[in-house]
């Protein structure tokens, strides 16, 4: 331990290995259904329902701003009516999943890390272990599964909202023709685009829940430890999301080839 700490690369790799281990262990307990239904429902409520306002605002304003921005460029080449197809494809393939994941990691990831961290420093996790309960089964599995269910749905919502609000800006603010906009948007947005966003959301959900639970359960001592774990959970999951997004995009671009 002591000599890995002064080698940051080794330390980072070791953390990555422990994260992966936690993920598979939690997947194992999800598959073996070693969690309580009640906890799952509670977590879905917390992640899904209580993130509504955040996700609605993110989706809507991203769609709006992108419409306003793309319009300027498209107007130069007289392709005004194509603006929504670009907004929609960008929302589906990139922005919907990434922005929703970043927002959710700020809200949900921080809460998970703080809660588990507090349980760790007040010995509640040890108490759990003495009560013959694996912390992964009781704490991590329901959170992971709930995030895996909720985040793709939230992402779909953000994408849909981005399209609708983009349309509103295009029609009412920029005065474009709704029929052309709509036809172009539907024609150029493929199911592969939507699928890509949802697959990404699924992957990001795994990252947020695993990183946040890991940071919480391995938090340092006292209030300071919990504070640091919370910050690290958000920063680390955001960074992993942004980096993995690139690689996931490369891979998905190979797999999801446009079928004519």
């Amino acid at each position: 331990m002591a000599n890995t700490a002064d080698n940051p690369i080794k330390e980072a790799l070791a953390s990555l290995a422990r994260l992966t281990y936690l993920f598979w262990e939690a997947m194992g307990s999800i598959i073996a259904k070693r969690f309580r239904m009640r906890d799952l429902v509670e977590q879905i409520h917390f992640i899904g329902v209580k993130s509504q306002s955040v996700v609605l605002l993110t989706g809507a304003f991203t769609g709006m701003v992108m419409c306003a921005q793309f319009y300027i460029q498209f107007h130069k080449v007289k392709m005004d009516s194509a603006v929504m197809s670009v907004v929609s494809v960008a929302m589906c393939r990139e922005l919907g999943a990434v922005l929703t994941a970043l927002m959710v990691s700020g809200r949900v990831g921080a809460a998970m890390a703080a809660q588990l961290g507090t349980m760790k420093v007040t010995e509640q996790i040890d108490a759990l272990r003495t009560l013959a309960t694996h912390p992964t089964d009781y704490l991590v599995a329901p959170r992971l599964l709930a995030t895996l269910i909720a985040l793709p749905l939230l992402t779909a919502e953000a994408i849909a909202l981005g399209m609708v609000s983009g349309m509103i800006v295009a029609v009412y603010l920029l005065g474009l023709d709704p029929v052309f906009l709509w036809t172009n948007m539907v024609f150029y947005t493929w199911s592969e685009d939507v699928l890509m966003g949802l697959i990404k959301a699924f992957i990001f959900a795994g990252i947020i829940a695993t990183v946040s639970c890991y940071k919480g359960m391995n938090c340092g001592q006292g209030a300071e430890g919990v504070g640091r774990a919370t910050t690290q959970a958000v920063v680390t999951s955001s960074i992993i999301i942004l980096i993995s997004n690139f690689f996931v995009t490369l891979i998905l671009n190979k797999i999801l080839i446009y079928s004519d």
């Binding site: 007040t122 509640q124 040890d126 108490a127 272990r129 013959a132």
Partner: peptide, 19 residues
């Protein structure tokens, strides 16, 4: 260990109740 721990009951110094 979980199987072994089923034999145990433990009272923590700080109680460690689930809050």
């Amino acid at each position: 260990l979980i199987k072994v721990r089923r034999k145990f009951g433990m009272l923590f110094q700080g109680a460690a109740l689930f809050d």
